[in-house]
Structure formats: C-alpha cells, structure tokens
C-alpha cells in the first residue's frame, strides 16, 4: 500500500491553494471533465480508490487488482501531465501570436500607407546595386553624344581614307576646320543639318583636292 500515505502528504500541500477541491473533497476529482483533469486530481482519485481497496481487506485477489489499478493510475497521471504541458505550450504560443497580431495591427496602417503610394508610383530598394538611377534625359544626352561621336568618327575615317589614298598631302589640311562641332543625332533638324554641312564640306574638300 503506497498510495494512501503519499496522498496524505500531497493533500496537505494542496489544501491551501485549491479551494474548489476542498469543497468537493477528493471524490470531486471523479466528477471532473477529463479535459480539465490535473495530476492532483489523479492523486485524489488514487486516494479514494486506495481507501476503498483497503476496505475490501487483504484478499490476494484484491492485492492483484490493486497493482493493476496503481499501474493504470500511473499511466493516467503521465497522460494528464503531458496533456497539461501541451496545453500550456499552446496557450503560450497563442498569447505570443496574439501579441504579434496586435503589434502588426498597431504598425499596420502607416506601413500599408507607405507601400500604397498610388497606381503610378514605384518603390526603389536603395540597397539594390541595379536600382534605377538615371533619368530619361540623361540617357537621351548620352545617346546623343554617342551618336555625335560616332558620326565624327565616320567623318574622320573618310578623311583618313583620303590621306591614305594620297588624295592630298598630309600638311595640307582641308578647309571647314572651324566647324569642329559636328552635330548629329539630334531630333532637332538644326543639329542634323549642321552635321550634314560639315560632312559634306569635308567631303567636298576631299574630292576637290583630287582635281
């Protein structure tokens, strides 16, 4: 007989803080819903069952039964403890999630206002090395310069060809040198015409020298 003495010890401890059980007594544990059962309730049940087994006397069959009942009660205690731990863990998780949701709800409105700039707005990640940096005008300028330089190169190549083919001696530089600013690729016709003039002048010179 192990259970009853253990039970007495436990009961004295519990009596101070568990008023509900005080009122119902150890038998109250048997009336509880299984989902609300605690380890203490299992001890109460052991106490009640142990007391009744003792009343049955020392019949060897009772003793046999008693071992099995103790084993079943131990199993019940393990299950109840485990269930309570799981419930506690879930409660903690629920509380932390609740806090997280509340936090997000508090921060929510300003964050969503920032992301929702309007249908024609774009958010740029400043840490992205490939983020857009230059304006259309800057690209336009670079392209115009590239095309202007390219046309200058073409003129220079043609001129070089003239020298190479011996059309005019190296010291004799053709006219039209004052117009160094060869302009091309501008959408404006003024730029284009100037470029054409320059190219044409140079080419005319080139071929004049020939004759």
């Amino acid at each position: 007989m192990e259970e009853p003495p253990l039970r007495e010890e436990e009961e004295e401890e519990e009596e101070d803080d568990d008023e509900e059980r005080d009122e119902a007594g150890p038998e109250g544990a048997l009336g509880k819903s299984p989902s609300r059962l605690t380890a203490e309730d299992v001890y109460d049940i052991s106490f009640v069952v142990g007391r009744e087994l003792m009343a049955l006397g020392s019949d060897p069959r009772v003793t046999q039964l008693q071992f099995k009942i103790v084993r079943v009660l131990e199993m019940l205690e393990a299950l109840v403890s485990e269930g309570n731990l799981t419930a506690e863990a879930l409660r903690m998780e629920r509380d932390s999630l609740r806090k997280e949701v509340e936090g997000l709800r508090r921060e929510g409105p300003p964050a969503s206002r920032e992301a929702n700039l309007g249908p024609d707005k774009m958010v740029v990640d400043l840490t992205d090395p490939n983020r857009p940096r230059f304006t259309l005008q800057e690209l336009r300028d670079v392209l115009q310069e590239r095309n202007r330089l390219k046309s200058q190169l073409l003129v220079a190549q043609e001129e070089l060809q003239c020298y190479k083919s011996g059309l005019f001696p190296p010291r004799e530089v053709p006219g039209g040198r004052e117009e160094k600013d060869v302009l091309v690729s501008r959408a404006s016709s003024a730029g284009r015409n100037k470029e054409e003039k320059t190219i044409i002048k140079k080419l005319v010179c080139c071929f004049r020298e020939q004759h």
């Binding site: 053709p174 006219g175 039209g176 016709s189 015409n193 054409e196 003039k197 044409i200 002048k201 140079k202 005319v204 010179c205 004049r208």
Partner: peptide, 14 residues
Amino acid sequence: SSGGGVTGWKSKCC
C-alpha cells in the same frame, strides 16, 4: 538645310 527631308548638293565651296 531646306525642308522636305531630302538633302542633295552638286557643288559647294569650302
């Protein structure tokens, strides 16, 4: 530099 898009020339002094 005249309009019409087509640019042509025959002889021109530089």
